[in-house]
Amino acid sequence: MNATETMHLQGVNLRFYVHSNAKHKGRLLYEWILEQARDQGLAGGSAFRAIAGFGRHGVLHEESFFELAGDLPVRVEFVLRESEAEQLLKTVREAGAALVYTSSPIEIGVLGGDDD
């Protein structure tokens, strides 16, 4: 594929929303989710920490100079094939992890960039 060609795939944007200090099986929950995805052979995932946010309980959490390690929202995100998303969701569900997630259909494109 040259730099002007594009590869298109249909996929899923899977996002998990957790608190930064939430734990599951002795690990930070966002780390545990990333480890499960890696163990399943998924191509990658990322965790993003918010600077402020609130959830279903209405409690506002904000990053401040004096509290940089507070209980802020974290989004753990994956771009996957539908079958991969279903498998990761099954793993998280069966483990009993308490969290919110979203799943949206997406088009995945890869532009140029030979791996040579």
Results as ranks from 00 to 15, higher is better:
69 A>C: 10
37 A>N: 06
49 R>V: 13
64 S>G: 14
91 T>S: 10
33 I>P: 02
49 R>T: 13
58 G>P: 05
68 L>G: 13
84 E>W: 00
6 T>E: 14
75 R>N: 06
49 R>Y: 07
60 L>K: 08
12 V>Q: 03
103 S>P: 02
10 Q>R: 12
80 L>I: 04
32 W>T: 01
63 E>Y: 11
45 G>I: 01
98 A>T: 15
51 I>G: 10
112 G>E: 12
98 A>I: 15
70 G>H: 11
56 R>Y: 05
113 G>R: 12
78 F>P: 02
49 R>G: 05
94 E>F: 07
78 F>Y: 09
62 E>R: 15
114 D>W: 13
39 D>L: 10
33 I>L: 09
95 A>R: 07
54 F>D: 06
24 H>R: 02
24 H>Y: 02
54 F>T: 05
60 L>M: 14
27 R>K: 13
34 L>A: 00
40 Q>H: 05
116 D>K: 13
105 P>E: 09
86 E>F: 01
22 A>F: 03
84 E>I: 04
40 Q>P: 02
77 E>P: 01
111 L>Y: 14
58 G>A: 09
79 V>G: 01
41 G>F: 04
52 A>H: 10
6 T>D: 06
93 R>I: 02
108 I>S: 00
4 T>G: 11
3 A>N: 14
55 G>W: 07
14 L>I: 05
39 D>P: 04
93 R>W: 12
113 G>L: 14
22 A>N: 11
39 D>A: 12
96 G>F: 07
85 A>W: 03
109 G>R: 15
24 H>I: 08
30 Y>S: 02
33 I>V: 13
96 G>E: 10
83 S>H: 11
75 R>C: 12
13 N>D: 04
21 N>P: 01
76 V>W: 00
78 F>L: 04
24 H>N: 02
53 G>F: 06
105 P>T: 06
102 T>D: 06
98 A>L: 15
23 K>W: 02
63 E>S: 12
45 G>T: 00
19 H>G: 15
27 R>L: 09
6 T>Y: 09
1 M>L: 10
10 Q>L: 12
93 R>E: 09
116 D>A: 13
61 H>A: 12
52 A>N: 11
19 H>Y: 08
78 F>H: 04
92 V>D: 03
27 R>V: 06
23 K>N: 08
51 I>P: 01
43 A>W: 02
90 K>E: 14
64 S>L: 10
56 R>M: 08
36 Q>V: 08
27 R>N: 12
30 Y>N: 05
81 R>A: 11
70 G>N: 15
97 A>D: 07
16 F>Q: 01
35 E>A: 09
34 L>Y: 00
36 Q>G: 01
4 T>N: 13
41 G>T: 08
102 T>Y: 03
45 G>H: 03
57 H>R: 12
107 E>C: 09
12 V>D: 01
47 A>Q: 05
63 E>L: 14
40 Q>L: 15
5 E>P: 06
22 A>Y: 01
98 A>C: 11
111 L>M: 14
8 H>A: 03
21 N>T: 15
82 E>M: 06
49 R>A: 09
77 E>H: 07
115 D>S: 13
66 F>W: 13
53 G>T: 08
73 P>Y: 03
19 H>P: 07
49 R>C: 08
65 F>S: 13
105 P>Y: 02
88 L>C: 04
53 G>H: 09
3 A>D: 15
73 P>N: 08
